[in-house]
Simulated scan of single mutants.
Amino acid sequence: MSELFALAQSPEVWVALITLIVMEVVLGIDNLIFISILTNKLPPENRERARKIGIGLALVMRLGLLATVAWIVQLTQPVFTAFGAEISWKDMILIAGGLFLVWKATREIHHAMDPAHDTDSPVTAHRAIAFGNLSAKRANGA
């Protein structure tokens, strides 16, 4: 109990908590805007249901991701040593995430510079926007 009281008195903990709250609010607003933009492209009778499902899934995913990050931060036991540095699972996950971001950014820049050669892009695919089976049938003319 005294450890919890000591944490509550630490300014670093309060700054981290306030930072996390601000980030969650900003990301939550971003989710609302993004879901609203996407659902406005649906037929009017499906928009409300799609918004509720989208916001619900965004909330569940955010909580799941926060739990995953809290778990990853605890993976500090060294797995192996490379170049005189002890590498843990947390380090490997962060390195893999960084490499993914570099790869994704490079691919996006390449696509922006030469979009004609990018055949894997979902932007080039022509699909009807639909929500559920009912909307897909309407979009396809059934």
Rank of each mutant, 00 (worst) to 15 (best):
S36N: 15
S36F: 12
S88N: 10
V79N: 00
A58P: 01
P44M: 05
R107W: 13
A82P: 03
V102C: 02
I129N: 02
G141R: 12
I53L: 15
A70Q: 09
A130I: 01
I37T: 04
I21Q: 15
R127L: 09
A58C: 03
K52L: 14
D120Y: 09
I18M: 14
G132W: 05
I18K: 15
W89N: 03
F5G: 08
F131D: 00
F83E: 14
T81F: 05
A8P: 07
E86M: 05
V15M: 13
W71A: 11
A50H: 06
L7I: 06
P44R: 13
Q9V: 02
L27Y: 12
I33Q: 02
A128V: 03
W14Q: 11
M1I: 10
E108T: 08
N133D: 12
T124R: 10
F83L: 10
A116Y: 07
T81R: 15
F131A: 01
T106R: 09
Q77V: 10
W14G: 03
R51V: 13
P43K: 04
D30C: 04
F34M: 07
L38D: 00
T76F: 00
V13F: 15
I33W: 10
V102A: 14
A82W: 15
P43T: 05
L38Y: 01
A139N: 05
F80E: 05
I33S: 07
H111D: 09
V13N: 15
K104L: 07
A96R: 03
V22K: 07
G132N: 03
S2Q: 11
R127W: 05
K90V: 00
E48Q: 03
D91S: 11
Q74I: 00
Q9C: 04
A105F: 07
A130S: 15
A128H: 06
S88Y: 02
K137H: 14
Q74H: 13
D118G: 08
R127T: 08
E12Q: 04
P44N: 04
F100G: 01
I55R: 04
S36W: 12
A85F: 09
P44E: 02
T76Y: 00
E45D: 11
F83N: 15
K104C: 02
H111R: 14
I37G: 13
A67V: 06
W71Q: 08
A96E: 01
H110P: 00
H110A: 15
L4W: 14
L94Q: 02
A58V: 04
S36K: 09
K52N: 06
G98R: 02
M92P: 02
K90A: 10
L7T: 05
T39Q: 01
A50F: 10
T124C: 11
L20M: 10
A16V: 03
V15D: 05
D114P: 01
K90I: 00
Q9K: 10
N31I: 00
A67K: 11
I55L: 12
I109K: 12
A139I: 07
V79R: 08
W103Y: 12
A136Y: 07
P44L: 08
H126E: 11
F83I: 04
A85I: 13
G28V: 01
G84N: 08
F80N: 02
S36H: 08
P11Q: 03
T119N: 06
A136E: 13
N140H: 06
F100E: 12
W103Q: 03
T124W: 11
G56L: 06
L38F: 06
A125C: 07
E108H: 06
P78M: 12
V60F: 10
I93W: 02
G98S: 10
V123E: 07
